[in-house]
Nucleic acid binder design. Structure first.
Lengths: 340, 340
DNA sequence: TTGTATGCGTTATCAC
DNA sequence: GTGATAACGCATACAA
């Protein structure tokens, strides 16, 4: 039953020629006579010969695989990035190996080591929160020192020399905060996570800068810092009950959705009494009630660009020591949770 | 700069022993003397030797890679399945190569051919809508005939002999419809997609069966069939304006969310006037307003089981010709869009 | 206890 | 025009 995969050797034996003749014939080499070429090509086609990728990889020292290491895949933003990577990689004949770090430093290290031993030509990755907390990037450095190209996206670090691509999170938060201020809001809350996450820090900075630029004093009582995982609804309720606010900026959709629910439960109207803006612009923002004004991170575009940067490095012969950081501009998508 | 990956050959030359001695020493073979083993192992550790995956793959004819081909990754259900696959695969030392068919038959074929030439040990996949529409499964048959194990999940076909894993969509729809009937609903609408999608068909069947079992006549005017992609809001509005209904079953979350919005705009209350139940149970269901009673598909579990079934086949020596179809039971998650 | 030879499937160099 | 050989990195049966 098992129709064995056919190899050059099989064809050679069957047609009574040498393996190298077969190889050349299938590449349409000028060296081979028309007759033998036709014979061999016909036979190969008949038996549906396809060269073995692994053998070619070993020979060429090129796998045509890209390793993607991300914290989580059940997360709209990362998902769109993966789609972008896939899209571009496929047009260039590359496959994508996806590994999940699950926000764990150890898993990130294990996955990278696994892939670094010949399985991939380069990495695209976003750091796990654990890694950013530990602030340990030796596994990344090892990889780059081995000459394996690496592109970091979104959750990056300046402690590693490599290509990077991020959105301007600070600008995004600034723009959003400015929009709220222009609406007339003065008591603008921020719901964020711990600052060791590079993106949360940048977003907080943007928020603070917008306030400062508009002479609004920072009120630490209306800044809520939550752990990345395991959000508790209670904390939200309490925060919104005791705080006097007229707008909220959230570093992700879920915080915003929860927040809106609390506000509504307190009898307030959105956006009349309280405006909301959230980062990410995933499904939740679009379908929320009211729909959520959001800062779009352009994940798919980011993925495509990351793949393009990586493949360009992979395929360039020269060992360049110059790295670039691409910064994408976020976009404010206005919906019904703010006044326009 | 480029710290070349070290190979057995390098170690052998450096320590003036043969390659096979090094190979054996690193495997802690009894054949090798303690002295040489220690010497070699120390050296290998110092230079961080790691065997090359590709070479091992070529030798063993085993890649330790699993190919996953799915229609889309920006989709909560598929995403959870991928996570489940990853989770199990990783514990068994396998990597996951993800390819997206983008609901296209051609891309599905190309991706599979690409991976089938030695890149993976087996496939886990869910059919593209295009493939189910074309009803052409030759690419799957070719793969199985080559002896490459294949596990189909969710969107499957009985035209291919292989392991399968699905949830009992008919039962899910039946349970949901029954729940609505038990609430006292009689005018239960169904919002679904074209029947060529295996899952939509099964769900429609379950809905019809529940009605019939409870002596409720089917009213084709309150069954809305939409194309898979490119949903138009207008169609929804019109449907809900002209239909007299007291409950709605939707084959996915987005239909349900849209539906709820229309109903609310018409001044009706959920769940008092109209109940809603939707398939999938993703983020939208959880965070909708009101939160959506949903039929959970247990994607992560499905992914884990699929990976387990596949790896078991991959690693079993004997060429079994027996295939199983696992059917998972869906679960009704009751939330605020129904009365409990 | 160590080393030699062979093979995994392919390609490239060089000889015939 | 065609074929033998070596090489990619590793593992193993078999010699020594």
């Amino acid at each position: 039953m098992l129709k064995q995969k056919i190899t050059l050797k099989h064809i050679a034996k069957e047609l009574d020629v040498s393996i190298s003749t077969v190889s050349k014939a299938l590449k349409n080499s000028e060296e081979i006579s028309r007759d033998t070429k036709e014979k061999i090509q016909a036979f190969a086609k008949l038996y549906n010969y396809k060269p073995n990728n692994i053998a070619i990889s070993l020979k060429n020292k090129r796998t045509k695989n890209i390793g993607v290491v991300i914290p989580d895949i059940v997360h709209h933003f990362f998902t769109t990035v993966v789609r972008g990577i896939e899209k571009y990689a496929n047009t260039k004949g590359y496959n994508v190996i996806v590994c999940l770090s699950d926000e764990s430093f150890d898993k990130e290290v294990i996955n990278m080591e696994m892939l670094a031993n010949g399985s991939i030509d380069g990495f695209i990755m976003s750091l796990s929160s654990d890694t950013q907390l530990k602030n340990d990037y030796n596994h990344l450095k090892e990889v780059t020192e081995q000459g394996i190209p690496l592109v970091l996206f979104d959750r990056v670090t300046n402690q590693v020399n490599c290509d990077k691509i991020v959105i301007d999170d600070q600008l995004g938060a600034y723009t959003a905060t400015k929009k709220l201020i222009d609406e007339g809001r003065r008591k603008i809350a921020l719901i964020t996570t711990d600052d060791y996450l590079s993106v949360s820090k940048a977003r907080t900075d943007g928020y603070l800068k917008a306030l400062s630029d508009n002479n609004i004093e920072v009120d630490n009582n209306i800044i809520l810092r939550l752990p990345t995982m395991g959000m508790e609804e209670e904390v939200f309720k309490t925060f919104f009950e005791k705080s006097d606010i007229d707008a909220v900026l959230c570093v992700n959709e879920i915080f915003a959705i929860y927040g809106m629910r609390c506000v509504k439960e307190n009898g307030l109207k959105i956006p009349e009494d309280v405006s909301f803006i959230g980062f990410t612009d995933g499904l939740l923002s679009k379908y929320a009630n009211p729909s959520l004004t959001a800062i779009a991170q352009h994940g798919e575009k980011m993925g495509e660009l990351a793949a393009e940067m990586l493949i360009q490095k992979v395929e360039s012969e020269k060992e360049e020591e110059t790295y670039q950081t691409k910064i994408l501009e976020p976009t404010l998508i206005e919906r019904d949770s703010t006044i326009n």
